[in-house]
Design a binder for these strands. Sequence first.
DNA 1: TTGAAAGCGCTACCAT
DNA 2: ATGGTAGCGCTTTCAA
Lengths: 346, 346
Amino acid sequence: MKNEASIVDVARAAGVSIATVSNVINGKGRVSATTKQKIERIIGELGYTPNLTARNLKTNRSDLIGLVVPTMQPGRLQDNPFYWDLLAGVEEGARDRRFHIILAGIDERTETFSFVKERRLDGLIVVGTNEGSQAVGRILELGLPTVFIDSYLSDPNLMQVYLEDRNGSYLATNYLIKQGHGRIALLIGDIPLENISYYGVLHERWLGYKDALAEAGIPYDPRTMIKLPTSLEGGYRAADQLIDMDDVTAIFSFSDVSAMGLLKRLRERGKEVPRDYSVIGFDNLFMSEYTSPSLTTIAQDILTKGREAVHLLLDQIDGSPITNRRIAMPVDLIVRQTTGPCRTKS
Amino acid sequence: MKNEASIVDVARAAGVSIATVSNVINGKGRVSATTKQKIERIIGELGYTPNLTARNLKTNRSDLIGLVVPTMQPGRLQDNPFYWDLLAGVEEGARDRRFHIILAGIDERTETFSFVKERRLDGLIVVGTNEGSQAVGRILELGLPTVFIDSYLSDPNLMQVYLEDRNGSYLATNYLIKQGHGRIALLIGDIPLENISYYGVLHERWLGYKDALAEAGIPYDPRTMIKLPTSLEGGYRAADQLIDMDDVTAIFSFSDVSAMGLLKRLRERGKEVPRDYSVIGFDNLFMSEYTSPSLTTIAQDILTKGREAVHLLLDQIDGSPITNRRIAMPVDLIVRQTTGPCRTKS
DNA sequence: TTGAAAGCGCTACCAT
DNA sequence: ATGGTAGCGCTTTCAA
């Protein structure tokens, strides 16, 4: 492995000063067409590549943004294909602007974010924290451009990308109502319902559910709330609770994976979907079309979400004027086979 | 955002030279206990964080490793939860050793890998290339420590982490044979069978399948090879081909997602699993336990695979003696509900 | 045990 | 249009 050529080597070979070479590399200053061509030729011949480390030391930027994801422990994120899509979107958006992504799995309780200062990161994208999480405070102290995804933080100055959660939930619930379902269970997550406003995403979706009920004149019944995790296993266990409920003929679950768990257990218990129960999920994961029966769900475009987040961040880093500090991504109802008209047993 | 304290500030505040501060930070050289304590106190007071950019410029290292994943285009990686686990494993392994991961989605045809030199990456982890891919040549030219995952490159000097693919395939096939299945289809991927040796992973698994057949004295029949992608949709379409085959009562599919597609279509066609067909997958994804019926599969530990790869790489970067340049990760047969005894219709 | 100083490769300012 | 050069923050050699 030979030593890399430096800007000095290029300058010497071209018979010019390093300042001129620098100008050519960065397209700054005034350089005559001939010297420019010559320098470019020599750069090619020498296989010269600018050393970003040196440039960054000088400019005090890193062209690096950190993607912060809460503890990548097995079991926690493992069952969520969601993150890969998000990451793909972020990476792609950053690449277009010559930034790179540093991935940082963090433990919310102990992480000090020292790497952010050490590496002079230019910005941060933070996924799925909640207001009051210890991490949020420490992140804000860094004083770095930051975009939060799916976090619903109340401070209006923070930049956030989230979903039309409330609307999505309304769409799902409303569709079930239009199919004749009067009592609709909600698999809402493993949280105390009295504190639901603390959990931004869940809260919004819960409101959307209630919006649809209210519009149809259906009373809200807290007993149809199922407080289990929106994971595969949570959905699986939720099915048993669902079956025990009186007159409930439909369930809306806040994730596709939990809807899959539901389908599994309902089948085991001899229930047929959508004859006995209508089921609707949230996310539209790639495999949701391939469950049996295929899953009706609220679709979100996770890839685009990642892309939007990184654009928002880069605009801020570059000092472009920010028009919106918050972006709500659209959702869409995808009707497939797990939902159907209500046929109440006589 | 105040200006960061530098090593000079610390030195001044402590009344020592920057060389001494540097020694304390790096635990090198001889420093008296008292000065050491004093300097450490001041570092705390000033909230000083070493500037890695400067250090890296000096030492010509970056403490950064690149994770190279072939084009993160939608459709290509989108339907593979696999990568997220791998990434989680790599990130975790790197974090332990104070390295960070830069994620690089690349287009195999056009990528020049200039970022590797620009950022002075210390090493590379490359996932799922094949011998003869244009990218491999360019990567090797970089002359950087590199670990290939699931790539089956023939050069014995390259460091590689892969699976006991052949054994896994043997286990699956053998299990089906022991269950009485005599003709077993293989969903092998969208490749020309004559060139199968070019596709490392598939080739190994194909050999494992043949090993089991040979051991049982069952002739290999190329007509039972299904040459469709091992994706959800590929599996879905494979089911139709399977049903058209004579006397075939079982299918081994090279991925869990394709097995899910199979289950879906078999059900649509009125076939029952495992009564009419036994199905076995590969990977043991998190959701494989939750399909209906739950999927028999060959399990691999993707998280550990990522961890092993990064350890191998870091050992090489640190100049530790490398004992094994190749690591084969173990596999495991997980019997669930999609397989059962063969009941040939009379 | 500690310090002085060179220099990593680059950018940007100021001269010419 | 081009060049000289200071200096970004650090490590490391050599001297004291």
